[in-house]
Design a protein around this nucleic acid. Structure first.
Lengths: 201, 201
DNA sequence: TGACAAAATATAACAGCGTTATATAACGCC
DNA sequence: GGCGTTATATAACGCTGTTATATTTTGTCA
């Protein structure tokens, strides 16, 4: 019926409106700007609305957390039949670096840097596991076919840690201590050395 | 005079008492536990005391920030005449990993993960620069004598990023996504590969 | 169409936060 | 002893996330 679909649309609209408001605030000012009252004001409703449509701030952060890891998953989604292993992995690394820069607030959230009190829900965690699985699928292309899961995990983690380390040093501490111009080639060189070491096996 | 030294002692005592209280709260519960009121309660004074002896929370965080980077400096302080380059650097890496685990709250603070609003003071930043200089002095032992400053910085950053990446993945995201047992050898292997690549030049 | 249950919304409040204005007590010094 | 400076205490402001209460809107059934 018309009434039913209208009602559903409005509910969906309300949820979407809240998420859009939260996303915008998050992108603009990070977590400090993401107060429940600010989200509600921007979405044109009372603060209580955040609690009826989500479970308060935790629910909103969960949605942003999932959004963040979905972007990671998308960045790792590379067709292995179109590129050689090294080329494919390097493409993924580049996408990862861009993503971390573009969605800084999301990136901080999924790596636990934003809100010390926030704990991702089981559903949100699933999005993280999925992203890691995509990463493993990508990086394993540089390993022998008979590599164990542990070996695949270790190699994926090594590359992830290399990227993450540079990205965090760039975004947090080091850029205030020393002046570095070209982060990108430096990061990709370091990652490339790890890939080459794996390819030599 | 007796009165002078007494006064000075008491002032020093008060400052020390505040810092001890803050340090203890920080170690126990991280930043969420480090409220101005909690520090004052633990130090046995009114909240205003934190503002007369430090510049509020910013001042306390600055002290902890410096404390954190001083620990990093100490970890990088290795006598190069007693070890070969690779051995010396690996020792520094091990110390770094231990430090990050033991002083988790400090580590998060100096890498900007604790309080989104906190900005280290110029004096605090100096402690960070000093720690980075120590790291460069250590890691440069693996490079040719005629290496440029930029090359030295790049290599130091590469190793730092490798460690930091693993440490943060372990402490924040990944340990909730996959189960990894032996982080230490994995981290040291990854760092070792970067060192070997530099030694081969 | 009118009545009643249910869901969504609004207002106001609670406890906590960092910070500060005001008021009181303690201190060194002349 | 009295004065000026300093440290301490109390209370308040505006903010935070959250919730209890009250109101309005909505959906369903007679």
């Amino acid at each position: 019926m018309v009434h039913d679909s209208q009602t559903t649309d409005l509910q969906g609209d309300t949820k979407t409106r809240i998420l859009d408001a939260a996303s915008a605030l998050f992108l603009e000012g990070g977590l400090p700007a993401l107060s429940v009252r600010a989200i509600a004001r921007r979405a044109g409703m009372s603060t209580i609305g955040i609690y009826s449509h989500f479970q308060g701030k935790q629910g909103v952060l969960d949605a942003l957390y999932i959004e963040g890891f979905e972007k990671v998953s998308a960045a790792m989604d590379i067709d292995l039949s179109e590129h050689g292993p090294r080329e494919a992995i390097m493409l993924g690394m580049k996408r990862y670096i861009d993503l971390a820069e573009k969605y800084d607030a999301h990136y901080r959230l999924i790596f636990g840097e934003a809100d010390p009190d926030y704990e991702p829900s089981p559903e949100a965690r699933r999005a993280g596991v999925e992203a890691f699985a995509r990463l493993i699928a990508l990086t394993s292309s540089a390993l022998p076919k008979d590599a164990t899961l542990a070996e695949k995990q270790e190699f994926a983690l090594t590359l992830w840690a290399t990227l993450h380390g540079f990205v965090r040093l760039r975004g947090n501490a080091v850029s205030q201590l020393v002046e570095i111009q070209d982060w990108r080639p430096m990061i990709l060189d370091a990652a490339g050395r790890q890939i080459d070491a794996a390819l030599e096996l």
